[in-house]
């Protein structure tokens, strides 16, 4: 089963709507709360990344009997140096975004921490796809 979400590129106020809706779905399915918590945190971070860096995109969250696979896709600028982006505290967010309290450089590290697998496909100027897998 796949839940599809559109993520608006400018909408900070509504950031987190996809992760919050998906959390309700998992609860209704009876997924244990510790798993839901991991999904929520990782998904929220990825959603905010899609807004800030990807200027919006899509999210497809697929539920399988043994795992959840969530794919975030954007057509933003792409990630120049993935290794650098994975470092805690490193961020390319603009001052304007930092003033809003985002851009602490913990997005990708947190996603990695709370998922069982994370794949990044990126190409400069074309966009980024991040695939998160969490075991059930």
């Amino acid at each position: 089963m796949i839940k599809h979400y559109e993520i608006s590129g400018t909408d900070f106020a509504n950031g987190g709507e996809a992760s919050s809706d998906f959390k309700t779905v998992l609860k209704k399915l009876g997924v244990p709360m510790d798993v839901i918590r991991k999904v929520s945190i990782a998904m929220y971070e990825a959603e905010i990344n899609t807004i800030i860096h990807g200027h919006g995109g899509t999210c497809d969250a697929e539920i399988m009997p043994d795992r959840v696979v969530i794919t975030f896709k954007d057509s933003g600028p792409g990630i120049k140096d993935i290794d650098l982006a994975m470092q805690e505290g490193y961020s390319t967010a603009t001052d304007q975004i930092r003033e809003l309290g985002f851009g602490a450089g913990m997005g990708l590290p947190n996603i990695k921490k709370y998922t069982d697998d994370m794949q990044i496909e990126t190409s400069e100027g074309k966009g980024t796809t991040v695939i998160l897998t969490i075991k059930l």
Binding site: K27, K28, L29, G30, P65
Partner: peptide, 17 residues
Amino acid sequence: YIMRLDDDFTVAMGKME
């Protein structure tokens, strides 16, 4: 657990779909 669709995960998935 009143919010749960079913105690069985596969059945709950079917219902959710």
